[in-house]
Design a protein around this nucleic acid. Structure first.
Lengths: 294, 294
DNA sequence: CACAACCTATCTCCAAACCAGATAGCTATT
DNA sequence: AATAGCTATCTGGTTTGGAGATAGGTTGTG
């Protein structure tokens, strides 16, 4: 592999302009330079690239056609590297690792990521879903750059948060639960049945006040929904979780005199590390998509 | 884009060996060369690649990690180009365009192509299926390099053929056809019913003699099978066509005193152009896979 | 604390590579 | 025949790029 990129560029330019001279004009080089470059390339590769039938336009050989494709692929890859470097030079991050609470609504997040890929086509994205505690931990341990979670009382000092929007909560019970036959469930009625709550120590959502003396706890809204579906109690769930197709017909929304305040969605990042342009851009997009929802 | 491939190689070598000196040893270059190469690369890209914290092993920056991947991709593409050139230098063809009769059994062809890709991993393959006339025409007009078809009386002078194997023919009728109730159909019985034959002018297969005074014609075995399935007559079909899953239960194989000789499968190429190694290799593979069948 | 064993950056020098310009030779068109 | 367009090759001057030497750093050890 003794050839170099200039020779490949010359070769490709000749292929696309049809003549050595035209390629030289396009490359702002002397014709002799192009001629020598291609000749050296042919010598290095041991393959005749053009059929020079004397004084007329050179014709690509079969081998030349194949290697033309390969050469274009090489140069394209080089431009990709250059583009990536340009972005990094401008301070763009090399990759963006987004960690989100698993109960985060998918649509706004996916819509934001779809928009992100158009604004930063070369950016590498890693998306991780997990319990709320995991999200914060990933940020603290620098295993994520940006976190997306619900408002939470305890937040490590090293993290900074920013409110993005809210998510409506609904009160639900299973289709076979006694409450399903009640037209309206006031607070006292709810207190007479088993309540399902998020486990408070690891992830303490703001909308999770204990009402009933009898509670079961789970660490994810999806686990709670499964329990509710089996008529083990009632619960407050984000509306988008309650209306998940899997639960269709098994979960009933209750009318009640009190529902917890909406979940507050927050964007979290490290306090000691500046966000790159892509992270800021994604933050804005998430605010737009989540703000219109809550 | 002022950097060159040597700088990329040096960069990648440093990434993989952990130090400039080790990379220099591996590349059989002086340490100063590697140092300068990386320094120039950093300058050209405008991106700091390593964190030199004084006298200890340099550490890749975040940007460096991203560009390391890109650089490796570029070099890999370059090696691909070199490999392709090496093959072409040895006389291997750049691409192999195989045209086959659409009624050719798929299994042997696919098995041969699967083996081909292991022997010639960089070869570009184009596979075209069509009526027999199309196959020969493609070869004559240089739109295909290798043809796979059934023996045929008229063959253009420019083409050369080679026998590969044979394919068994069976006599079939539809499940509701009167012949379906006959335990044994001799030639005279067959002659009393409508016979479906290949159209002779465009594609004249050897196994297609007219027996019945009443014939319908079609230009593909698949079209004939469709007609037979609707009880419009009986026909001779290649066994692999007759046992195609779509026709399962709708086509019956008849016992008869005479079936046409097996179809002879032939490999066809231009007489005036030498076959490359891949074409010869594929020809051998096809002979193996088709020979064991007939 | 001195020393050895690593490492990297930088300087100088020299040979090889490379480019522009000029020239010669070819073909197709007028 | 003349012209215009093309390509290969030669030549001279510039530039690039590598080797070698040197300086300066950190880590680990006696």
């Amino acid at each position: 592999m003794q050839w170099n990129l200039d020779q490949l560029s010359a070769f490709v330019a000749v292929c696309e302009h049809g003549s050595f001279s035209a390629a030289a004009r396009d490359l702002h080089r002397a014709q002799s330079a192009v001629s020598q470059a291609v000749a050296l390339l042919e010598e290095d590769l041991g393959v005749r690239l053009f059929e020079r039938s004397g004084g007329r336009m050179p014709q690509l050989t079969e081998a030349g056609k194949a290697l033309h494709e390969e050469a274009r692929a090489v140069l394209q890859q080089c431009q990709r590297l250059q583009g990536r470097a340009n972005g990094l030079q401008r301070g763009e991050e090399a990759r963006l690792r987004l960690a989100q609470d698993e109960a985060m609504p998918y649509q706004p997040v996916l819509a934001s990521l779809e928009a992100l890929v158009h604004a930063f086509p070369l950016l590498e994205v890693q998306l991780a879903s997990g319990a709320q505690g995991d999200v914060a931990r990933k940020l603290v341990e620098r295993r994520a750059d940006l976190g997306l979670l619900f408002h939470h009382e305890q937040m490590p000092e090293a993290l900074e948060r920013q409110r993005l929007g809210t998510i409506e909560m609904v009160t639900v019970c299973g289709a076979g639960h006694p409450l399903a036959r009640v037209p309206y469930a006031d607070r006292r009625t709810l207190a007479q049945h088993r309540q399902l709550l998020m486990t408070p120590q690891d992830s303490h959502y703001s909308g999770g006040e204990q009402i009933s003396p009898l509670v079961w706890r789970a660490d994810s809204f999806y686990a709670m929904a499964e329990l509710v579906m089996r008529d083990l109690g009632w619960a407050w769930l984000p509306r988008h979780v309650a209306s998940y197709p899997t639960y269709q017909g098994h979960l009933l929304e209750l009318r009640s005199d009190w529902t917890p305040p909406p979940l507050v969605v927050e964007l979290v990042c490290r306090r000691d590390e500046a966000l790159g342009p892509a992270a800021r851009w994604l933050g804005d997009a998430l605010a737009r998509h989540l703000g219109s929802e809550g």
